[in-house]
Design a binder for these strands. Sequence first.
DNA 1: CTGTTAGCGCCTTCAC
DNA 2: GTGAAGGCGCTAACAG
Lengths: 341, 341
Amino acid sequence: MKQPARRVTAAMVAEHAGVSTATVSLVANGKSSGRVSKKNEERVLEAIRELGYYVDSIGSSLAKGVSSLVILVAPDISNPFFAKVITGVRSVLGNDYQLLLSVTDAGLSPSAAETRRLLGLRPAGLLVHAPTQEFLDDLAGPLPLVALDAPRIDESIPAVNMDVAQGAEDVVAHFAKLGHTKAAYLDASTGTDTLTVRREAFLAAAQRYGIEVLPSSIDSCMIDVKVASELFEQRWDSWRADGVTALGCATDNHAFGVLHAARKLGLDIPSQLAVAGFDDLPYSATSSPGITSVRLNATEMGRQAALKLREILDGRSPQELQSTLPSSLMVRGSTQPEGAR
Amino acid sequence: MKQPARRVTAAMVAEHAGVSTATVSLVANGKSSGRVSKKNEERVLEAIRELGYYVDSIGSSLAKGVSSLVILVAPDISNPFFAKVITGVRSVLGNDYQLLLSVTDAGLSPSAAETRRLLGLRPAGLLVHAPTQEFLDDLAGPLPLVALDAPRIDESIPAVNMDVAQGAEDVVAHFAKLGHTKAAYLDASTGTDTLTVRREAFLAAAQRYGIEVLPSSIDSCMIDVKVASELFEQRWDSWRADGVTALGCATDNHAFGVLHAARKLGLDIPSQLAVAGFDDLPYSATSSPGITSVRLNATEMGRQAALKLREILDGRSPQELQSTLPSSLMVRGSTQPEGAR
DNA sequence: CTGTTAGCGCCTTCAC
DNA sequence: GTGAAGGCGCTAACAG
C-alpha cells in the first residue's frame, strides 16, 4: 500500500475499478447490497484496498449535511470517574459513530464561541456532561443531544442522572447514626447542578436529622486535592471551635485534600472528624483511611446516555426521556473505625 | 438572535448585507483588512450578528483542504495524569485550533480503521500520546504530528518525552541507599514504550547497584488499582520467600493496588516492603503512607508538544525535533518512615 | 476594493 | 444495475 502524493479520492477509485463514483460511494458505505453487481462490488473493494482509499468525512458530511461524529463535551476530564463514562459510551456507539471528546478548561462549560465551533463540525449528536443552562441556550437548535449528570435540566431534554440527592441523604443518615450533631460541608466551586443538588440535599437532610450545619461551616473550592487541603487547613480551627465533628465533601477529591491536611494537622480521622465524599473514585477505597463515599455508576451512565442518543439518531424517541441511576453509600474508615463495622 | 429553521449560510448573509459571499468569507475570517471597505465590513458584521451566522467548518475545510482540528489521540484517559497534559496543550493552542480528543478502549492504540476515520476528518495536526509504531505506520502520510511520551520512537518524528529512565535509576539508587538488596518489579501490561523503558532502566540500574531482581519477582498487570491489588496479594508470599524487601511499580496506580493489598495482608509499608511508583498522581501525596514516586511534569509535556506542533503548522521546523523533560523523585512514606526523612 | 467563477469530495436523485 | 449531473457551504484565484 504505497502512499500516493495526493489524497486518494473516490474518483480515482472509480477510474481504477472502471466504474462511476456513485458505485464507489455505494460500496464504500456498505449500501451496495442489491444495488451493485457482485462483480463490480469486488472490483471496487479491490481498488479501495489497492489505493488505500478511505471516505473523506469532510466531503461526506458536506454532502449529507451531517457528520457521523458524536461529541462528548466534558468540562472536567481530570475526574477519573470520567474514563468510565467514556467506556460506557463507546460500548454502545461502536463503529457506527465516531466519538470525540471536547474538553474545556478545568470545570468550565464551553464558551459560546467554543460551542459554535462545535456546531460547525456538524456533529450527528452531542453528549454533554453537566451542561449549564447557558450552554444549552447557546446551542439553540434541534441537534440531537443527551445530557449526563444534569439533575435540574429542563424536562424536555433527554438526560441520564444519578441519584446524588439520595446519596447525600445516605451520608447524613450515616452521620446521624454515628451520633454526630454538628457538621460542615466542603463544596466544589464549579457550579454544576449536580454539585448544587449534593449540597442542598445534604443541608436539607441535615435539618431533618437534627444535624446542625452553620453557614460558617460551609465553604467551597476548586476540585483539586491540593487546593482543598489548603482550604481545610485554614478553616479547621474555626470549624472545630464550632463543634464540628463530621464533614461532607462534594467530591472525593475534596475528601482527599482533607485527609492530607488532617495528617499534617495531626487530626485523627474519623475519631476527631468523620469525612465522607462523593464519586467513589478508585483511590477512595485504597487510601488510608478509606473514604466513605457515595458510589455512582459511571459506566452505566455513559451506556444509557449513548443508548438514548442512538434512539434519537435513529428517529425513535427515547422511551424514558430522563432516567436516574441509583447511588449507594460505601462506608469506609473515614467515618467509622475499621473495627466498628 | 432568533433561530431560523434552516442553517444560516454565507449566501444568506451576503444577500442580507448586499455583498457577495466572497466578501462575507473575508470578513468572517478576519481577513478583511485592506481588502474590504469599512462600509461593507460593517454591513457584513451587522448581518452576521443579526442572522447568527457562524462559519461552517465542514464547508470551510473542504474548500481549504484541511480543517482547524488538532486531535489528541489518547490511549489511556483514565490516567489523571492526562488531564494535565490537556491543560498544557490547550494553553498553547488557544483559539487558533480546535482541540478534540480521540479516546480508545483502555490502553489500546487505535486500530487501523479508527486511524483512517481520524484522517478522514482532515485534522490540521495530530498529538499522539504513547503511539505504537504500528499506529504511526497506519498513518503513513505527511500529516503534522507530534508524539508525547514516546521514548523509542523514530528519530525523525517530533516528540516530547520524559526522562523516565533517570527516574527509574533514582528509584533504584534510593532503594540501594536504604539498604535493600532484593527487589521486585510490578510492570504494566499495556506495552507502551515508556513502560518498557521504565522496566528496563529499573532492572539495569538494579544490576549496577547490586540489587537482585529475580525473574520470578517480575510480574505485570493492567493499569488498574483493583487488578494490581489482587495480583500483589497472590504474589507476595512467593516474593517474601525470595527475600524481596523493595518493590518498584510501573505506575502509581499499581502502587495504590499494592498499598491496598498490603493493608489487607497486614503487611507494613515501608518496614516490611518499600514501594515506589511512577507518575506522582495527585493522590500519591495524600495516601497513607504517601507513595514515593517519580514525578513527571505532564502540563509541561503538553505545552511543549503543542508548541512543536504549532511550529510545524506554521511551516517552521522545530528547533529541537525531540526533547526530554526531567523527572524528579518524590520521596514519601512508602519507602521511608516519616521520621527518617 | 469587489464580484464572479470554479472547484474541494462526496452523496443522492434521476435518467438510462 | 449503472452513470451523469447537481449541489452541500465555503474559499482562492481571477477578472473587473
